[in-house]
Structure formats: structure tokens, C-alpha cells
Computed example of a mutant assay.
Amino acid sequence: MAKAASQIEMPVGVIVRKKPGITRWARWSWRAIAVLPGAGPAVWQELRREGDAVEYHAATLPLTLWADETEAYMVNLSDGQPSLYLVLRDELKGDVPLNAVLITASPFEGQDYADTGEEIVEKIPMTEGLIAWVRDFALKHHKDEVFIKRRRDKKRTDLVEDGKGDPRIRQASDVYRAPRRLVQ
């Protein structure tokens, strides 16, 4: 019996749209708008221009699905619009305006990158084919985790608590109060 692969990978091209900014502080507005499943390699290749707005095939990144992350994929698929999460960094290297670092189908991983505040995380709607590909993988590898309720220990809670608070405080009313120096 052959063991199922614990991961699968597909190259995914990312389409990024550049428009003039609406404030004087942001000259350009960058937004990931679409993905190209199975795309070939590209580095900021211009696809279309409409006035000042330009669409680029910014990068082709590997979309890797892991068997251990199926719970995250199931959460993503149950969303109203299943999406991929693109992580971009503003690194000012050469002619590349933004560096595409990662693309993932895990909303948990996307949230982890968004929490740092150093990267730009864009949510891109999945195509129907990608939804089916992720769903098939998730259903094949998903194992529900059994919830085990923790049982309380039998320790009595009505007994006197030793070691609580500062022993230098004579008052029983406020054991968490800091001791004061006596002024003479």
C-alpha cells in the first residue's frame, strides 16, 4: 500500500496592480488581484496598462499544501470566498518594487505574517480549480482531533492558603499589598 504524500506543490503566478495613490504620502497603491495556477517563471513582467494603472505578473511562487495544516485549509474553504494569502516585503532591491516572499492557503499562516507588521499580506480570491485542488487534498489528509475535557483534581479549595501574599503584612484583608516602611 502506497503512503499518501504529506505535501504537494503547485507553481502559482501572482498578478499585482499598481495605481496612483490617493494621498500625497503614498505615491503608488499596490494590490494583489489574481493568481495564475501553473504559471511559468516571471519577475515583474508587465501584462496590461490602462492609463496610469499597470498590472504585472509579479512572481511565480510555489503553493505548498501540508498534511499537518488541513484544519487551516478547511477553515479557509468554509469562508465565503476561499483565498490565498500573498506575503510581500518592501525591500528596495534593484528594480523590483516589492519582493513576493510566500503564497499560502492557510489563513493562520497569513495572520502570523500580518501580525509582525513588517510584511504586506494580501488576500487573493482562489480560482475554482484551486478551490477543488485544496479541498481534495484537505479531505484526503484531514483527521479530526478528539476533544478531551480536562478533569479537575480533587484538591479541596476551602482550606487555608499558605504562602499567599507577603508574610510581613499583618492585615488579613489585603495580602497582595506591598509592605510599607515605618517612618519614625
Rank of each mutant, 00 (worst) to 15 (best):
P11L: 03
G94R: 07
P167L: 10
Y113R: 02
E109H: 08
I22E: 09
A100M: 06
L77H: 03
T60D: 02
L88M: 13
E69C: 04
R152Y: 10
P179D: 07
Q81P: 06
V14K: 00
Q184S: 13
V16P: 00
V101G: 04
E128I: 08
L92A: 13
I169C: 07
N99R: 12
A138S: 08
A67G: 04
V101K: 04
V87I: 14
E145S: 11
R180L: 13
S106T: 04
P41K: 12
G80P: 04
Y176S: 12
P82Q: 07
M126P: 01
D174H: 13
D153F: 10
R170T: 14
A72V: 02
P179W: 05
A58P: 00
E9R: 09
A26H: 09
E128C: 08
I124W: 01
H141Y: 05
K143Y: 11
V160Q: 11
I103F: 03
A100E: 02
D90P: 03
Y56K: 01
D136V: 05
V146G: 09
A72Y: 00
A132I: 11
Y85L: 03
M126E: 03
K140L: 15
R168D: 15
L139C: 09
F137W: 04
D174I: 09
V75H: 05
D52A: 10
V96D: 10
E109T: 11
E55V: 00
I33F: 06
D174K: 11
K154W: 12
Q45S: 14
G94M: 08
R31Q: 13
R150E: 15
A72Q: 02
V87T: 07
R24Q: 11
D79W: 09
E119N: 12
V183A: 11
D115W: 06
K164D: 08
D68W: 13
T60C: 05
L102T: 09
L77N: 04
T127K: 06
A58E: 00
S106P: 02
A178P: 07
A172F: 10
R177I: 11
A4R: 13
T104H: 01
L63V: 02
I131V: 14
V160L: 11
K143D: 14
T157F: 07
Q7K: 14
K164W: 15
T116K: 08
L77A: 06
R156P: 07
T127E: 06
A172N: 15
A4N: 10
D144T: 09
V16I: 08
K155R: 15
R48T: 12
G163I: 10
G94L: 07
L130M: 12
I103H: 00
D153R: 12
L88Q: 03
R168A: 15
R48Y: 11
V14T: 03
I15N: 00
